[in-house]
């Protein structure tokens, strides 16, 4: 078992700020891409997350009549919390905040939490547009979740462990991303999907007047938008030990390599926005079940064959 030191629990209090920094970098990348398409300069682009934060924190909240305030609060505040909980099991070099023996399953549990949160964000405001969007997200989730679970299982099979540090160290020589391309691809696709981002932005898209964001303003909106970048950042971090060899790499230290790899994955996830038409859940359902599910099962067979 590789030596990974668990930090004192109190260090975990720094996790949200650290992840927020990574998420801000991601938001800046997405902002830069949008700004470039609109013809704005690079400086404007890079500062978009900051100006948006300032704008939204000064904006009033609004609550539609007979909204379910409690569940809406849970959804809005839950997104950042779940994102941070998803990320804390990732080993950073030789240290880790939470050395969970079932880190892979924990990640899976947190991504399932997002089912609840996106749906609740649609239910909360008592508005037709957001209600339709929240349900549309669940329809998509039913199609990506099982392929994602199998994609998560493949690295665990090859590493004989569900602990992320073990999975990372099992890739000496060859990254799982290389010989498990299907699992890695499904992972990236699902990360975009459970963040309701890019081609899978079904919960928050202009065709439903912003979907779950249709009634959301001020700090609520900031929490949802920031929460989404946090989830993308967390998914990018988890991809590093799962598929990209963890902190392994020449010259730079393991912490630096983990961050560099996470930033690259984050760039791929963030820059998927707007590049392709939205993939509608009613189309994706059959692809998820009839194409991706068998493909990930075969991938698992390959992983099991390679492992035994």
């Amino acid at each position: 078992m590789p030596e990974v030191t668990t930090l004192q629990p109190w260090w975990a209090a720094l996790a949200p700020v650290t992840l927020l920094t990574l998420a801000a970098a991601g938001a800046a990348m997405a902002g830069a891409q949008t700004a470039r398409r609109r013809g704005d300069g690079p400086l404007v682009a890079a500062t978009t997350p900051l100006t948006e934060t300032w704008r939204l924190l000064r904006q009033r909240r609004r609550v539609p009549v007979a909204a379910d305030r409690v569940l809406w609060h849970v959804a809005v505040g839950g997104l950042p919390v779940v994102a941070v909980l998803m990320a804390v099991v990732v080993p950073l070099g030789s240290v880790v905040l939470v050395d969970s023996p079932v880190g892979v399953v924990w990640f899976n549990a947190m991504d399932v939490m997002l089912w609840a949160l996106w749906w609740l964000a649609g239910w909360g405001p008592n508005s037709t547009h957001s209600l339709v969007a929240g349900h549309r997200f669940l329809g998509l989730a039913l199609a990506y979740e099982l392929p994602l679970m199998f994609a998560l299982t493949s690295p665990a099979i090859a590493a004989h462990s569900l602990r992320l540090a073990d999975v990372a160290s099992a890739q000496q020589g060859l990254w799982f991303a290389v010989w498990m391309p299907v699992a890695f691809g499904v992972y990236l696709l699902s990360a975009v999907a459970f963040s309701s981002w890019g081609p899978f932005a079904v919960a928050a898209h202009s065709d439903l007047a912003g979907g779950v964001l249709a009634e959301t303003s001020g700090v609520d909106r900031w929490l949802v938008l920031a929460g989404r970048h946090l989830v993308l950042a967390a998914a990018a971090l988890v991809a590093v030990p799962l598929f990209l060899g963890g902190g392994a790499g020449p010259v730079l230290g393991p912490v630096a390599w983990t961050l560099v790899k996470a930033l690259v994955v984050l760039a791929v996830l963030e820059l998927s926005a707007g590049r392709a038409p939205m993939i509608r859940p009613e189309r994706f359902a059959e692809v998820g079940w009839m194409v991706l599910l068998p493909a990930t099962v075969l991938q698992m067979l390959v992983a099991a064959g390679g492992a035994s």
Binding site: P101, V102, V105, A109, V112, A116, L138, E145
Partner: peptide, 21 residues
């Protein structure tokens, strides 16, 4: 009971999201 605890959270949130529907 690490695995049991996490899998209970995973499964039950998933099932309840569907049950709510």
């Amino acid at each position: 009971l690490d695995y049991l605890g996490v899998i209970v959270i995973l499964m039950m949130v998933m099932e309840m999201a569907i049950m709510a529907l």
